[in-house]
């Protein structure tokens, strides 16, 4: 067991311990770690953002790609929020951002999410499938329809509709349970990495 001599590893280990000190109490040590991480992330993001502007906008502009002046002007309009008189102009870049995102999203969503998923749900049963495969393939459309009916509120959930929507409710609870279990497992995985850093990288534990 040899403790690391790397200053970076030391800083990382101290920050991890400071971060996990929240388990005991929210002290100044945790607050220091929290604010340092926030500052670091904000700083890195700012640098990367600035780098993007230089690479994608400024360099082509200086090389004669005059059309780049349009996104530059649109981007600068965001800063009109600082003035009460011209603040309304800041809506233009927001409109451009939202509209371009939505228009692209809608067009691709229809083919991928709606048609692609329906196509996948209604796939034929392949030859040589076992009884479990067949059950698995049949469960998907049944559950999908029952969940859709569960969210149909135009009619009271009684009689046949009530029974089908009950299947939907159980399916939803099952799915949410699986999701919750997976989220819990993931959160544990997140803890393992910093612990490994302390035990193996910093303290030099060899197992």
């Amino acid at each position: 067991m040899a403790i690391s001599t790397d200053i970076g590893v030391w800083i990382a280990a101290i920050m991890i311990i400071a971060g996990y000190s929240i388990i005991i109490k929210n002290t100044v040590v945790f607050k220091f770690a929290e604010r340092t991480v926030l500052g670091l992330v904000a700083g890195t993001t700012a640098v990367f953002g600035f780098e993007q502007i230089i690479k994608l906008l400024w360099i082509p502009l200086t090389e004669g790609k005059i059309v780049n002046i349009i996104p530059l002007i649109i981007a600068l309009l965001l800063f009109t929020r600082l003035s009460k008189e011209y603040a309304y102009l800041s809506r233009i870049p927001i409109i451009v951002l939202v509209a371009s995102g939505i228009s692209l999203g809608i067009t691709r969503n229809v083919s991928t999410i709606i048609f692609g998923q329906i196509k996948g749900m209604l796939k034929p049963i392949p030859t040589g499938s076992t009884i479990f495969d067949i059950i698995g393939i049949l469960i998907v459309p049944v559950v999908c329809c029952s969940v859709l009916l569960f969210f149909t509120y135009t009619r009271e959930h009684t009689g046949a509709l009530g029974k089908v929507s009950l299947i939907g409710r159980y399916a939803l609870m099952f799915a949410l349970g699986v999701s919750f279990g997976n989220f819990t497992a993931t959160r544990t995985n997140y803890v393992i990495l910093p612990l490994k850093r302390i035990l193996f990288d910093w303290l030099g534990l060899v197992v």
């Binding site: 749900m121 999701s179 497992a185 993931t186 995985n189």
Partner: peptide, 26 residues
């Protein structure tokens, strides 16, 4: 992907044939 996202972010796409294969978590 990471474990939390497997049932909602990967399995539906994989069963529909939109993802070829996947690895999940540790």
């Amino acid at each position: 992907t990471h474990t939390a996202m497997l049932p909602i972010d990967v399995i539906p796409w994989y069963t529909a044939g939109q993802i070829t294969a996947y690895l999940c978590g540790v």
